[in-house]
Simulated scan of single mutants.
Amino acid sequence: MPHVVTENCTGCRFTDCVTVCPVSCFHGDDDRVYIDPVACIDCGACVPLCPVAAISEDLNLTDDRLEWIEINADKASALPVVREKQAPFPGAEARRASVAGRA
Rank of each mutant, 00 (worst) to 15 (best):
P51I: 04
I71F: 06
P48N: 13
V23G: 03
S98L: 12
N72F: 09
V52F: 04
D29E: 04
V82R: 14
P51Q: 07
W68T: 06
A39M: 15
P90K: 01
P80A: 07
E70A: 15
N60G: 02
F14L: 04
A100C: 03
V82N: 12
P2H: 12
G44A: 15
P90I: 02
P37C: 10
G11L: 10
G28T: 01
V23F: 08
C21D: 03
P80K: 07
S77R: 12
F14R: 03
A94R: 09
E70L: 10
M1Q: 12
E84T: 13
R95N: 01
S77A: 10
V99M: 13
C43L: 11
K75W: 01
A78M: 09
E57D: 09
V4N: 09
G11Q: 09
G11Y: 02
V47Y: 13
G91H: 05
I69A: 04
D16Q: 14
E84L: 11
R13S: 15
W68E: 05
D16S: 11
C50N: 11
D31P: 00
A53V: 00
V4G: 12
C25W: 03
C17A: 14
C40F: 12
T15D: 07
V20Q: 11
P2I: 10
I35D: 06
H27P: 02
I35L: 13
D74P: 00
E67W: 02
E57P: 01
C9P: 05
V33L: 11
E70M: 08
F89S: 01
R13I: 07
C17T: 09
R65H: 12
F14K: 07
P22D: 10
A53G: 00
G44Q: 02
V20T: 15
D58Q: 14
V20I: 11
V23T: 00
I69T: 12
M1H: 01
P90C: 01
F26C: 03
E67I: 11
V5I: 15
S77L: 00
A94Y: 01
A94I: 05
A53M: 03
E57W: 08
V5L: 12
N60T: 08
G91K: 03
L61Y: 02
I69F: 06
V23S: 10
A76C: 01
A92K: 04
Q86S: 08
R102V: 04
R96I: 03
C25Y: 10
D58Y: 05
S77C: 02
F26D: 00
A78L: 10
A76D: 06
L79H: 08
F14V: 11
D42W: 04
A78V: 00
R96E: 08
F14W: 14
R83H: 05
E67V: 11
D30M: 01
I35E: 07
T19R: 09
E67D: 12
V81L: 04
I71N: 07
D29I: 04
S77N: 05
C9K: 06
D63N: 10
V52N: 03
I55W: 03
P2Y: 14
P2L: 02
P90R: 02
N60E: 15
L59P: 00
V52M: 04
A45W: 05
S24L: 07
P22T: 08
V5K: 10
